[in-house]
Amino acid sequence: MTTKTFTAVIHKEEDIYVANCPEVGTVSQGENVEEAIANLKEATELYLEEFPLPDNNLPITTTFEANYAQTA
């Protein structure tokens, strides 16, 4: 069994938290942050059982700035 660290991007939509793993493409949700992460972990593990990552799959993490107009 292999262990790898993945990223969880979490945002709130109305009354639920949505968690996304950008390296794999899995998404899940929960009533709080902890539940959303636990559900994302389970979804990612199940996905990787069927579709394992290649050994050379190295994610790239970066940031960027975007300009936008705010409305009052």
Score class of each variant (00 low, 15 high):
residue 13 E to P: 06
residue 34 E to G: 10
residue 44 T to L: 01
residue 21 C to R: 01
residue 41 K to R: 15
residue 26 T to N: 11
residue 32 N to L: 12
residue 26 T to E: 14
residue 14 E to F: 10
residue 33 V to R: 15
residue 56 N to C: 06
residue 61 T to P: 04
residue 43 A to D: 01
residue 63 T to Y: 04
residue 56 N to M: 02
residue 61 T to S: 12
residue 43 A to F: 00
residue 38 A to K: 08
residue 44 T to N: 00
residue 46 L to F: 14
residue 29 Q to P: 01
residue 36 A to H: 07
residue 21 C to P: 03
residue 29 Q to K: 08
residue 59 P to I: 13
residue 34 E to L: 08
residue 62 T to F: 15
residue 21 C to I: 07
residue 34 E to S: 09
residue 54 P to N: 11
residue 59 P to F: 11
residue 60 I to H: 11
residue 14 E to S: 07
residue 28 S to Y: 00
residue 47 Y to V: 06
residue 27 V to K: 15
residue 63 T to G: 06
residue 38 A to C: 05
residue 14 E to H: 13
residue 10 I to Y: 07
residue 29 Q to H: 07
residue 67 N to K: 11
residue 51 F to N: 06
residue 16 I to V: 06
residue 3 T to K: 15
residue 33 V to W: 10
residue 64 F to N: 02
residue 49 E to W: 05
residue 48 L to S: 03
residue 55 D to G: 13
residue 52 P to C: 03
residue 47 Y to I: 07
residue 68 Y to L: 14
residue 24 V to F: 02
residue 42 E to S: 02
residue 52 P to Y: 00
residue 19 A to D: 11
residue 20 N to H: 15
residue 52 P to E: 00
residue 61 T to F: 14
residue 6 F to T: 12
residue 66 A to V: 15
residue 25 G to D: 11
residue 29 Q to D: 12
residue 54 P to F: 02
residue 18 V to I: 14
residue 53 L to D: 01
residue 6 F to G: 07
residue 41 K to C: 01
residue 30 G to E: 07
residue 17 Y to Q: 05
residue 22 P to I: 08
residue 56 N to S: 14
residue 45 E to Y: 04
residue 64 F to M: 10
residue 25 G to N: 14
residue 37 I to A: 03
residue 45 E to Q: 14
residue 33 V to P: 05
residue 39 N to W: 08
residue 26 T to K: 10
residue 49 E to I: 00
residue 33 V to N: 08
residue 47 Y to H: 15
residue 7 T to C: 14
residue 37 I to F: 03
residue 11 H to G: 05
residue 18 V to R: 04
residue 4 K to P: 05
residue 37 I to W: 08
residue 36 A to T: 07
residue 27 V to Y: 13
residue 8 A to I: 04
residue 63 T to E: 10
residue 43 A to V: 01
residue 7 T to S: 15
residue 17 Y to C: 05
residue 36 A to I: 06
residue 44 T to M: 00
residue 15 D to N: 11
residue 44 T to H: 01
residue 26 T to I: 13
residue 5 T to H: 13
residue 35 E to G: 00
residue 40 L to Y: 04
residue 61 T to L: 08
residue 48 L to E: 07
residue 40 L to P: 08
residue 30 G to C: 09
residue 50 E to I: 08
residue 22 P to Y: 01
residue 19 A to M: 12
residue 61 T to N: 14
residue 68 Y to D: 12
residue 19 A to P: 04
residue 46 L to P: 07
residue 35 E to I: 02
residue 69 A to H: 10
residue 40 L to I: 07
residue 36 A to N: 03
residue 17 Y to P: 03
residue 35 E to T: 06
residue 36 A to R: 07
residue 45 E to T: 05
residue 25 G to W: 05
residue 9 V to G: 00
residue 37 I to T: 06
residue 6 F to P: 10
residue 6 F to Y: 15
residue 35 E to S: 01
residue 8 A to P: 05
residue 8 A to S: 04
residue 28 S to M: 03
residue 30 G to W: 12
residue 28 S to R: 00
residue 15 D to T: 10
residue 43 A to I: 00
residue 33 V to L: 15
residue 54 P to M: 12
residue 41 K to Q: 12
residue 65 E to R: 10
residue 60 I to Y: 09
residue 54 P to S: 15
residue 34 E to N: 09
residue 10 I to L: 15
residue 6 F to A: 09
residue 36 A to Q: 06
residue 62 T to C: 09
residue 4 K to Y: 02
residue 66 A to N: 12
residue 39 N to K: 09
residue 58 L to G: 00
residue 21 C to F: 04
residue 35 E to R: 09
